[in-house]
Design a protein around this nucleic acid. Structure first.
Lengths: 201, 208
DNA sequence: GCTTTAAAAAGTAAGAT
DNA sequence: ATCTTACTTTACAAAGC
């Protein structure tokens, strides 16, 4: 959790990285059937999905392992956690005598974060003034804003809470939150939260 | 050149064939939804733009027509939910919604944020409510919007609750059940919106 | 386009108590 | 009536249909 306070603007955001999606490349092919036979608690149904599903309890992540030696790891809440999880997954595979050669190449593909600006957002006004947005309360309560720089998508709620997704680096998340705050502020789509309401959270 | 003219003619004829089929679908769905001609015309205009931009490729004509109808309804302020529209197509709501988003992103079609007051008109006519009830409901919704009670909420649910209150205030009691049914929301939603409107707007309900 | 995984936001829905 | 569970939206990769 990161709390950002900026003295220039009255800006206080609580930001949480909620989920990191990454790909891991092992330069070798894998025998998923052999893995399914030897490793416990694994799901593998090639008719349903080509990847084998492996859940690690600590750090709690889930990985999809493919026969090409590529994997998708989801659920990590920080880069450190992601790296630790990948190391443990590989150690586990080796423990069940799956030969793993070389070191894995980890690439973060997407970071999902949540943030709270502690303000009320006028979504109707924002929908009218912001570019590249979609606000369809019949379908979803949040306003969907596509930011160009950093290139992320934000789901903004009237409570001042939001979801940021599409980032590939953590700093893009912080930059995006700061930018959306400034933007909403300039467009006068923000109003203060009553102190009473603030306390209940 | 001749070749170029030939290609253009071929493309035009494929667009014409697509349009002909689409107009039939538009007429069929539009009539099932009891839409006025103005909305059907607007939907036709939107659909034509979509075909000319090649947005229908890889998608069913029917779902794009449905999406165009939805967009037209929103522009003309004739309330119809995506569920109501998609029930007359082979596609489901999700697919029609996908096409609608495509139209929004690819065409220069301005669609206003959906207005709960449009649903007051819709629900009101289905329940044959008086103008007075609908006027009261609209006033409630205006106040609710002004105090920021409506953001993110389903306009149909808001309208349903406002109508429930307005009907009570005008001595024309309707059950939450019948209102919820025509509004296309659950009774629980009507109740939740109702409680919120009553509490936040300090509305007095005639006690009986 | 779909399939599978993860996670948050806030609203709505469905079935059970 | 209230609770629990689940679905709506966003992004992204993997391999195959």
């Amino acid at each position: 959790m990161v709390i950002i306070a900026d003295s220039n603007v009255q800006y206080k955001a609580v930001i949480n990285i909620e989920n990191i999606v990454a790909t891991v490349t092992l330069d070798q092919n894998l025998d998923l059937y052999a893995m399914e036979r030897s490793i416990p608690n694994i799901e593998y149904d090639p008719d349903q999905f080509p990847g084998l599903i492996f859940r690690l309890e600590q750090p709690k992540v889930t990985s999809l392992i493919f026969k090409s030696g590529k994997m998708v790891v989801t659920g990590a809440k920080s880069t450190d956690e992601l790296i630790k999880a990948v190391k443990r997954i590989i150690r586990t595979l080796r423990r069940y005598s799956i030969r793993i050669i070389g070191k894995p190449k980890i690439q973060i593909q997407n970071i999902v974060a949540s943030a709270n600006l502690h303000v009320h957002v006028n979504l109707d006004k924002a929908a009218f003034l912001l570019e590249n947005n979609m606000y369809e309360p019949e379908q979803f309560p949040g306003l969907i804003f596509r930011m160009d720089e950093p290139k992320v998508v934000l789901l903004i709620f009237s409570s001042g809470k939001m979801v940021i997704t599409g980032a590939k680096r953590e700093d893009e998340v912080y930059k995006a939150v700061k930018r959306i705050f400034e933007k909403l502020n300039e467009l006068e789509c923000i109003s203060a939260v009553e102190e009473e309401e603030e306390l209940e959270l | 050149r001749w070749r170029k003219w030939q290609i253009r003619a071929r493309i035009q004829s494929s667009i014409d064939r697509n349009l002909a089929q689409a107009m039939n679908e538009l007429e069929r769905i539009g009539n099932l939804l009891n839409l006025p001609k103005s909305v059907k015309d607007e939907a036709a205009l939107i659909y034509r733009k979509a075909v000319e931009k090649g947005l229908v490729r890889g998608r069913s004509i029917e779902s794009v027509v449905a999406a165009a109808i939805y967009a037209a309804c929103r522009r003309m302020k004739i309330a119809r939910t995506l569920d109501e529209i998609s029930q007359f197509t082979k596609a489901n709501r999700k697919e029609v919604a996908r096409c609608y988003r495509l139209l929004l992103r690819e065409l220069d079609v301005e669609v206003p944020v959906s207005d709960s007051k449009d649903y007051v008109t819709r629900i009101g006519s289905l329940l044959r409510l008086s103008g007075a009830v609908m006027k009261t409901a609209a006033e409630i919704l205006d106040k609710a919007k002004n105090v920021g009670l409506t953001a993110g909420k389903d306009p149909a649910g808001l309208a349903a609750a406002a109508i429930y209150i307005a009907a009570l205030q005008n001595d024309d009691r309707r059950t939450q059940k019948e209102i919820a049914q025509v509004a296309g929301v659950t009774e629980v939603t009507v109740r939740n919106r109702y409680k919120e409107l009553i509490n936040e707007l300090k509305i007095q309900i005639p006690t009986q």
